[in-house]
Nucleic acid binder design. Sequence first.
DNA 1: AAGTGGTCTAGACCACTCC
DNA 2: GAGTGGTCTAGACCACTTA
Lengths: 231, 231
Amino acid sequence: MPAIRNWQAVRDEVRRRIAERLWRPGDFIPHETDLAHEFGCARATVNRALRELAQEGLLDRRRKAGTRVAVNPVRRARFDIPVIRDEIESRGSACRHTILSREMLAPPPDIRARMRIASGTELLHLRTLYTADGAPYVVEDRWINPDAVPAALDETFADVSPNEWLVREVPFDGGDFTFSAITSTPAEAVALSCEVGIGLFLLVRTTWSGGSVITSVRLVFHPGHSMHTRI
Amino acid sequence: MPAIRNWQAVRDEVRRRIAERLWRPGDFIPHETDLAHEFGCARATVNRALRELAQEGLLDRRRKAGTRVAVNPVRRARFDIPVIRDEIESRGSACRHTILSREMLAPPPDIRARMRIASGTELLHLRTLYTADGAPYVVEDRWINPDAVPAALDETFADVSPNEWLVREVPFDGGDFTFSAITSTPAEAVALSCEVGIGLFLLVRTTWSGGSVITSVRLVFHPGHSMHTRI
DNA sequence: AAGTGGTCTAGACCACTCC
DNA sequence: GAGTGGTCTAGACCACTTA
């Protein structure tokens, strides 16, 4: 057997042993020290490899107990969540955005709860349409907390979309994403130039910085939109 | 300032400096050696922290060039994709599955392409319904490649669902996920006891092991289903 | 109480890029 | 060619669990 001296090789070898059922789900695998000895590398190298596999969900590690092959391989998929403009332009299409409406408004209860806003407080409410080569791509229904982002009140968002502006001006450090499907309402059908009563992909995202919620946005995508990833 | 000696603390401090715009998008940040010196820790510790942030998408690292704050903070969110049974039971509901149909069948062209199956080859085709406390949860339309998993032909999947059986018997090492929304067809409406013409969440997953495709599955979830994550 | 993974260190060399 | 991040090592100590 060739020497296994870098962490990727260790990772691949462990993966292979699991795939070939040398080590079966639920089994304990040898300790880091033993594997390091077997592979002829340092324990830190083995640790790096096993840590990676544990993060992937393939291994289950616990101090004192040891490392075992995950019984239920919960697969963790990583999604890139790009800025809409990048998503559209990376497909070679021209992206344009239009502000459909802009107003100060007291948010409905569900938004208030999601953003932890006191009753009666008014937020900046924006509706924006993004098009790809002229075709409606997504409608964005966004609430911005002016307490967290006072500068937003002076912005028209004509040149820079709300999303890009916020990304540039207020780096967030946390977010909450929900993906689901909805049935198109008349309003959404008009905005996206599609029929009423068809399935549309919905992404609701709330982002915060420190303790305060910055913005909550509801993105309704054009019919046929999909999100894709590979593990 | 308190000492910053472990990699989590370094990571948080770097995050803070970016959030407070001390380091702005596009800026180069100090080299690992300098940061290690400033924080009073080893370079490896700084490396671990910066590597983590780069993986998150917050930093952009290149040899020789250096490390800079990402201009377009593409956020990477991780989703856990659990076994359906776990997903249902973790909500405290009782999970049951029913095989709606089971047959050997030549797959339609799109499935053939997705699974890289030669024209004319027959695959095992299964339709399964999962219920949570008796209510339809998801309908699964699955194709299994008997070349990759001969043992599947002898299975009735009465006790163990196709998904669980495959997870247990054929550890896969790669997968391809697509999330989208569809409009319910009459067949789906019947299976899920819902109306025709409403939006449903759809997950299409193809998994392989080594070079050969094992299975491709199309999951249509009950109305209102959502996927959630936090970063 | 003891054993395992988790992490830090200091130093070294390597590999990739940019100039 | 030179400089940066990427990785490996050997040893040490720590922290968390569980036996």
